[in-house]
């Protein structure tokens, strides 16, 4: 049997303000590998911890470009090369007619890329995550706000980190088994 290692230490707060203050302090204290869990998006949390890089728009843009190009080229190839048919005397390459399907394909591919890009970047679907081992974490989707310091952080120390988190005035501090 593998011995249960520790994933991190988790502090619970009962208001967003308390979490934001705690996150700022933890970040200033020098902890780098930290995360916060909230029932609804709170911009200030990201500011407190400093996570600004986001690849979703890039993925969406690439998806849109690929979709638009493949939509137009598909119509061009079908209508002028593989299966040219004279319809109402229109040219084989009647590009104004092709804009519509090109537009729809752009939106479709961009939308699919945005959604699956977000899921992939977030690592979803995620069948198992250690934070759920703490039973009080069930309230993270209701009205509680959690801050975690990962055991992989350089500054992490089972005793000192716990003392530090308790000094932030949390409702509770719990060890998260991995």
């Amino acid at each position: 049997m593998k011995t249960t290692a520790t994933y991190g230490l988790m502090a619970e707060f009962d208001s967003p303000r308390a979490l934001i203050t705690a996150a700022e302090k933890t970040h200033k204290e020098g902890y780098k590998k930290i995360d916060a869990y909230t029932p609804y998006p709170i911009e200030e949390v990201a500011e407190a911890i400093g996570f600004h890089h986001n690849n979703v728009p890039l993925v969406t843009l690439i998806g849109g470009i690929v979709g638009g190009l493949s939509g137009y080229l598909m119509q061009f190839w079908i209508s002028t090369i593989d299966y040219p048919v004279n319809i109402g005397g229109k040219p084989y390459h009647s590009w104004p007619s092709f804009i519509i399907v090109t537009f729809e394909m752009t939106i479709l591919f961009a939308g699919i890329s945005a959604v699956f890009g977000m899921l992939a970047l977030n690592g979803l679907p995620m069948p198992y995550h250690p934070v759920f081992n703490v039973s009080r974490f069930a309230m993270a989707s209701k009205d509680r706000f959690f801050l975690i310091v990962f055991a992989s952080d350089k500054k992490y120390d089972a005793v000192a980190t716990r003392q530090f988190l308790e000094s932030l005035g949390p409702v509770s501090v719990a060890e998260v088994p991995s």
Partner: peptide
């Protein structure tokens, strides 16, 4: 729910998407 846990990183990407 695909294992959604409400991490602020997840929320940030979620809001962007």
């Amino acid at each position: 729910s695909l294992g959604w846990n409400g991490s602020y990183r997840a929320w940030q990407r979620y809001e962007v998407v």
